[in-house]
Write a protein that binds this DNA or RNA. Structure first.
Lengths: 316, 316
DNA sequence: TCAGATCGTTGACACTGTCAACGGTATCGA
DNA sequence: TCGATACCGTTGACAGTGTCAACGATCTGA
């Protein structure tokens, strides 16, 4: 009885919020009026800027867009020189989509404007309320995503705080699971620090996996030489394993590397990291070299793996 | 320094939520595909169903719609017999808009479907999470509404729990401010109970004012005779006074009564309630009778006020 | 090998929303 | 009292947004 009443109250509250936010999104839309892009186009651009080279159908599914409509949007982008299509080696019907330098620039401007708009909103709030707002938003997202069985995770570009998280989680996990000492955390800190300080976004990238609003994994792809990319710091949270996050991260690197013009990807790991090894094998990497070393307070066997990008562009 | 990082993180979280909910509203939109109404039309219907007879321009402002676009939507509704226009007595350029019985019926169906959809979402959540969800939504609404200086309050139809709130707040306030005893709360409970149990929605209404997600006021308009309506239980929370909530509630009753075909509105109050008296005077009510009585544990002077609807339809 | 599904594309089309202009009305100060 | 100005609701013209069905090419699995 009382629970029926309560349920009705909740339904009313949720519907009220839907109405409220419907209107609010209309207002956000207005901020784009000055730009040459529609809200939908901006959403597409944003998705493309994540850099994981989706096919058109993946993009359409991710954003809930009609395939025909999306096709036309993409044609428009191509005509303006904002995107390039790379035919998929695995499926001749598909192409992988990526922003050109101009595309990145166009997106960067929108991105900055959007950030400024949100920052202005936050600035008009007492600082404590800003945190409350973000927390409430994360709660809603988590609960709804869980209820609707939406995609269990998303990849995105790193934002402030993510780099520190990468170092922190690497240090913690490897200490806990393998007993490695602080020198390992130091190594990760150096790699991440160098990337954060300076990198070429056209050829070097980091992806953060997020699940239920929580960071759940990371990977870096950096330049070793003009022809060789290096995959580093692949990490998936223990409680987020088995969802395909690792595979998706490795795959995303492969696509990006191929599109960025590298010939092959190399990576260094250790034989004790069994689950990572399986990921690399599944993605087509081959074991090139194997040598014992003493590091991080243990006797380990280091391994070098390589993926040739000529024939083996991973699909989907 | 750390505050800059933090601010960036918050901006990212808010933007992520915007993207998420943009998509989610797209999904909600799909639920309407089966109906003959577009999302915008549904929003208009919802606003009209609140029963406070807005003019077209008020409606457009409330929903952020273009006047031309809205004009066509309304014409369509009128052609389908869903709404009627009552010329405003105060401003010949305006008409007051109200749903016809058919309009109410069409809306009721949509409303039920929408409620069912939300209820299904909530049902797929653990009960505790449903409450969390509603709380988080209320928090967001409150914070954003405050930051953007949006309309400080809205009127809406009562939902489960509201009637109890009306009784509770009346009892509390009049006990605290005037020392009235429980018999007053009992009187309110009877009035509200009778309304909740049974009323004719075409000629009797209740409005709840909501501010920052909190209930902030109430009013009832019920039938005294075919020609006379009675205004009852006007209430505004002490900390929500001075915003025009009371005036808006009284005004809404006036409009509704005129449209429902009453000739005049009567109400009974007591001389100690000075601020209410000012509201009635401003709305055009005249003091008809005044007689002492002993009630609620005190010697009081009861007053009867009346508003003639023939000439004095309040505008806006 | 073949039926059925998927990918991206296209044409046709209805709907959504914007903009400028207009007649009628209200407001306010000279 | 008048006139300038602003507002209300309406209309025409139009560009943008999104939907639907159909198509050829390709992939998948029995």
């Amino acid at each position: 009885m009382s629970s029926t009443i309560e349920r009705e109250r909740l339904v009313a509250a949720v519907r009220e919020f839907n109405r409220f936010y419907t209107q609010r999104i209309g207002v956000l839309h207005e901020g784009l009026l000055a730009s040459p892009f529609s809200l939908t186009e901006v959403r597409v651009l944003y998705e493309l800027a994540q850099g994981d080279q989706p096919s058109a159908s993946e993009l359409g599914r991710a954003l809930g867009l009609d395939a025909g409509y999306l096709s036309r949007i993409l044609r428009g982008f191509e005509a303006k020189g904002l995107i390039v299509r790379t035919p998929s080696a695995a499926d001749a019907r598909q192409s992988h989509l990526a922003l050109t330098a101009e595309g990145e620039a166009a997106f960067a401007e929108l991105d900055a404007r959007s950030s400024a708009e949100v920052a202005a909103l936050l600035a008009s709030l007492p600082p404590a309320d800003g945190t409350k707002l973000a927390d409430a938003m994360a709660t809603i997202e988590r609960l709804i995503a869980r209820a609707t069985g939406a995609a269990p995770f998303v990849l995105r570009q790193p934002v402030a705080g993510d780099f520190g998280w990468v170092v922190h989680r690497h240090g913690l996990l490897y200490a806990r699971e393998y007993g490695w000492d602080a020198s390992f955390e130091g190594l990760v800190a150096e790699i991440v620090g160098a990337f954060a300080k300076d990198h070429d976004p056209a050829r070097e990238r980091c992806w953060i996996a997020e699940k239920d609003g929580q960071v759940a994994g990371s990977v870096f792809l950096v330049r070793a030489s003009d022809e060789v990319a290096k995959l580093r710091c692949l990490y998936v949270e223990p409680d987020a394993r088995g969802l395909g996050i690792g595979q998706r991260l490795v795959d995303t690197c492969t696509r990006f590397a191929a599109q960025a013009g590298y010939r092959r990807i190399t990576l260094w790991t250790n034989d004790v990291l069994v689950s990572a090894r399986r990921l690399y094998e599944a993605a087509g990497y081959r074991l090139i070299a194997s040598e014992p070393h003493h590091s991080f307070g243990h006797d380990l066997v280091g391994q070098t793996w390589e993926l040739d990008l000529a024939g083996a562009v991973a699909s989907h």
